[in-house]
């Protein structure tokens, strides 16, 4: 799948000797080696990359990368409801979401049970976030399945999953109120940090994940793992919102380019 992961260029580390880089092999090991010498700087967003139409049999699909975090999303539907028992309301579409992490996505290869608590929680979070933007009323008696899988985890997986799901839903032609994007921000050594990677995340500082409706300027997701003073929190959240807007800008560019390409090939 694509080129081998490289060190995030947007990050700056305090001059690790080139020797340590050569001794350690995998990017994860390199990152752990660098963790000790990590210097906190207010870096910007990691490199973003999005690709539409990566799963051929899905109604919509997308691959989304934020730095070394790489996520694939596939949308099936709107389609007939498979399990009538799950149907809450006859007048709107049922949205389902399944989040999973590939066994090879983290540094140490672990075998996770399919429905562990962490992935159940993230599935729920993504489902609720996407439900906020999908116009479910337009698709009565149907269901939309969203599958997101983390191929490479380097912090901010839930943000990347939400961004990938947005792209995939737009590709599937599901009507949406607005584009939802997500980005995380943290606070380490008195510096607000945007888009935390694994090393920064595991340093133990607070991690604020924000999801916004880009055009309407409304927050649909806000999660924080630790306590923060209110004024600091506002700074951090503002930073995360700016990150979301940058992601939104990028996602719209990709979507517009994809739409133009489809239309130009189809011809008149």
């Amino acid at each position: 799948m694509g080129p081998p992961p490289t060190l995030p260029t947007s990050h700056s580390f305090s001059s690790p000797s080139p020797k340590t880089l050569q001794e350690t092999k995998t990017p994860f090991e390199i990152r752990f080696a660098l963790l000790s010498s990590l210097s906190i700087q207010n870096h910007g967003m990691r490199h973003l990359k999005g690709e539409i139409g990566v799963v051929s049999k899905a109604d919509g699909s997308a691959l989304f990368e934020m730095g070394n975090t790489r996520v694939i999303a596939a949308v099936y539907g709107p389609k007939e409801i498979q399990n009538k028992g799950q149907q809450m309301n006859n007048n709107e579409a049922l949205v389902r979401c399944e989040y999973s992490m590939a066994n090879f996505s983290t540094g140490d290869r672990t075998r996770r049970p399919k429905g562990d608590r962490r992935s159940t929680e993230i599935s729920l979070v993504i489902r609720q976030t996407m439900e906020a933007c999908i116009l479910t009323k337009l698709m009565p008696r149907s269901q939309i399945d969203i599958f997101v899988q983390v191929l490479q985890a380097d912090g901010g997986t839930r943000s990347a999953c939400i961004n990938a799901a947005t792209l995939a839903l737009a590709d599937a032609g599901v009507p949406m109120r607005d584009i939802i994007t997500s980005c995380s921000a943290g606070y380490l050594c008195t510096t607000p940090l945007l888009d935390l990677n694994y090393a920064e995340d595991s340093a133990g500082g607070p991690d604020v994940t924000v999801g916004i409706l880009a055009k309407m300027d409304k927050v649909t997701l806000l999660q924080m793992d630790a306590k923060l003073p209110l004024d600091t929190f506002e700074n951090v959240m503002q930073l995360a919102i700016e990150g979301c807007k940058a992601v939104a800008q990028y996602i719209r560019e990709i979507l517009l380019e994809n739409t133009k390409q489809l239309e130009s090939r189809r011809g008149s």
Binding site: K215, R252, S264, G267
Partner: peptide, 23 residues
């Protein structure tokens, strides 16, 4: 060839009218 297709499409009105979600 793809560039050529794109250039023909760009001359029609449809290309200008492409929108994405929330435009």
């Amino acid at each position: 060839a793809l560039d050529q297709l794109e250039s023909y499409a760009a001359s029609t009105a449809a290309a200008a009218a492409s929108v994405t979600v929330a435009d």
